[in-house]
Design a protein around this nucleic acid. Structure first.
Length: 280
DNA sequence: CACGTTGTTCTTCC
DNA sequence: TGGAAGAACAACGT
């Protein structure tokens, strides 16, 4: 489930393999992945143009386009927009060798390639999305698009003061608040559980009932958990031993005290936590 | 084959 | 006006 750190690795993956390159052909292999754009419009906007830069906020990724070959142009091109849904990832194939970012499916096949961007030398960037909950589209102005969605600041870009001020306006349970993309953008189900575990905060705790120490811890762990995962290039098995993420699952136990983890639906999402060290 | 899965949006109530 | 809570929805693998 791509959250902020995974999408950041996708951004870097594009930066590394695709930036500055002219797209010779766009293949839409499953039109259901498209959002607000026809297949023909997406192809027309990207084909023959270069990827110029990438912008990410939260789980949203925008890829800038410019005419290939330094043509002096005409009118501004839209941005390519990607959202990775539940199962999205990228791969890049060159001379028969396929690279997948660390979070991608190691048993990768072409079965769930939804959009393929082919370059002039035969290499290609593939957008995989098994469940089709993700999106590919065109956006004229990323800022306006994010404003319309009421997207908060990126969770790795927000300072402590701003975060705590926004948090203190809320009164509900802490976990659903962390998942609300209008507070800060980028936290999903897995890393929300992780930061709460690291701070020993029960996921149903009311924001108003958190101590100042717990609030400060939450900011510190939000940054630490997300940054650690970015640094690990989203290879979750490389995260610290004491992380809850390694123990998610039916028979998981707390890495601190071996208490069987509690599994509960909170804010409509499956939530893992330690009932002993995250007391109500 | 009904169920589980998560990110996002919609709805209802306050 | 917007927050809280919860339902709905997307589509697929098991």
């Amino acid at each position: 489930m791509p959250e902020l750190p995974e999408v950041e690795t996708f951004k870097r993956f594009i930066d590394r393999y695709a930036l500055g390159r002219a797209v010779q052909e766009v293949q839409v292999l499953h039109p259901k992945i498209l959002e607000g754009v026809t297949q023909a419009a997406l192809i027309a906007a990207v084909q023959g143009n270069c990827f110029t830069r990438t912008v990410r906020r939260g789980k949203h990724l925008f890829i800038g386009l410019a005419p290939a070959g330094g043509k002096t142009n005409v009118k501004a091109l839209p941005w390519l927009y990607l959202h990775f849904g539940m199962t999205g990832y990228l791969s890049y194939t060159e001379q028969g060798r396929t690279m997948v970012n660390a979070y991608g499916d190691p048993a990768r096949t072409d079965a769930h390639v939804r959009v393929r961007f082919a370059f002039e030398d035969g290499s290609h960037l593939d957008f995989h999305e098994q469940r089709l909950f993700g999106k590919a589209g065109l956006v004229d102005d990323p800022q306006a698009y994010m404003d319309a969605k009421r997207l908060g600041p990126d969770a790795l870009d927000v300072d402590c003061k701003t975060f705590l001020a926004a948090l203190k306006r809320r009164k509900g349970q802490i976990k659903p608040v962390l998942l609300d993309q209008s507070l800060v953008a980028g936290i999903g189900n897995v890393y929300a559980d992780e930061m709460l575990f690291q701070c020993r905060i029960h996921p149903e705790k009311r924001v108003a009932d958190l101590s100042q120490g717990q609030l400060d811890c939450l900011y510190a762990q939000m940054v630490a958990v997300l940054q650690n995962t970015v640094d690990a290039e989203a290879a979750r098995e490389q995260l610290p031993k004491g992380y809850l993420i390694h123990h998610r699952g039916k028979k998981g136990r707390c890495p601190r005290d071996k208490t069987p983890l509690a599994v509960q639906t909170i804010g409509g999402r499956t939530t893992y936590f330690c009932p002993a060290c995250q007391p109500e």
